[in-house]
Simulated scan of single mutants.
Amino acid sequence: MLAELSPALIAEVKLAAQLLASKQRICVLTGAGISAESGIPTFRDKQTGLWENYGVEDLATPEAFIRDPKLVWSWYQWRRQMVADKAPNPAHHALAQWQYHSQTSDQQVTLITQNVDDLHEQAGSAVTHLHGHLWRNRCGQCEIPYQDQSRASYDNQGTMNFDETLLNCPHCDGYIRPDIVWFGEALPVQAWQTAEDAAANCEVFISIGTSSLVYPAAGLAQSAKQNGAQVIEINPDPTPNTIVDITLAEKAGIVLPLLIAEITAL
């Protein structure tokens, strides 16, 4: 399997595997790159079709929802429809396998994601979401979760409902919105606390499919580094990040299964 990679990358994979196999506390942060390998467009990709003339400020801010809730809701229903048939890729499955394997070893593998899809969960991982959940909704006014419109509503592809009609909260009559952290909003307190604790106490921090340059998530790698952890980056386009100790410049779906196989074999 490793023969598929270049000699230089093979050496880096083996180095990373030896490091990870020798440590107990691992913190993994995943970003848009890992979902892109399953065919989910990144937020920074150019919008297409009906949405090509809209920007972030029109579709993913609290102000946009106040200004035109129907437009924002319609876009998220479109996004749900776009990702409904997407499945976990080998990178998601490798991380789930690693977490499962860690249950019978001394390792603790904490998985944090910036993604709003549920591909990690579909693969079997326990994951903390920093930016919310695409398949969950809550009231935009009183913040109470809206239980009637959840991922369960979309599980059967024969009965999926992507109706763009606005929904009202049964408690305050406010409009229902996606349970997503929009630009300009704070990260969920508990999720961020989990991420901060995991980063500050880990021995190795792994960044997968994310630049590690955008705050506040970028602060996690820096916190790990400041507390003595080594930092591994998995990204086909490595970032100019001076805190990275090992760079695996390849798609996560290619390198992660090989890396996890090496770790579990040691």
Rank of each mutant, 00 (worst) to 15 (best):
C142D: 12
W192F: 07
L130I: 08
A229F: 04
Q107R: 09
R44G: 09
A32D: 06
T210M: 03
P188S: 06
C202Q: 14
T247F: 04
K251G: 14
A84R: 07
P216L: 08
L5I: 01
S105H: 04
Y54K: 12
T194N: 14
S74W: 03
L259A: 04
D118Q: 14
V116A: 09
Q18W: 08
Q226I: 09
M1T: 02
A17Q: 01
T42R: 09
Q190L: 07
L59Y: 04
A200N: 11
G209S: 08
K23P: 02
D106H: 14
P69M: 02
L50Y: 15
E37Q: 06
H129E: 11
M1F: 13
A87V: 10
P41D: 06
P88K: 05
A221F: 02
W51F: 11
L256N: 00
K251D: 14
L29C: 02
A249G: 10
A191E: 10
Q103I: 08
V13A: 05
E203K: 12
C142P: 03
Y215C: 09
P257A: 00
G209I: 13
A265I: 07
L187P: 05
F205V: 04
K23T: 12
E37G: 03
T110Y: 08
D118K: 14
D173M: 15
C142Q: 06
D118T: 13
P90E: 04
L213P: 13
A249M: 10
I180F: 06
V231F: 06
A87D: 02
K86N: 10
W135M: 05
L2E: 06
V13T: 05
R44V: 12
A195G: 04
F65M: 13
L5T: 03
S102N: 10
P7I: 00
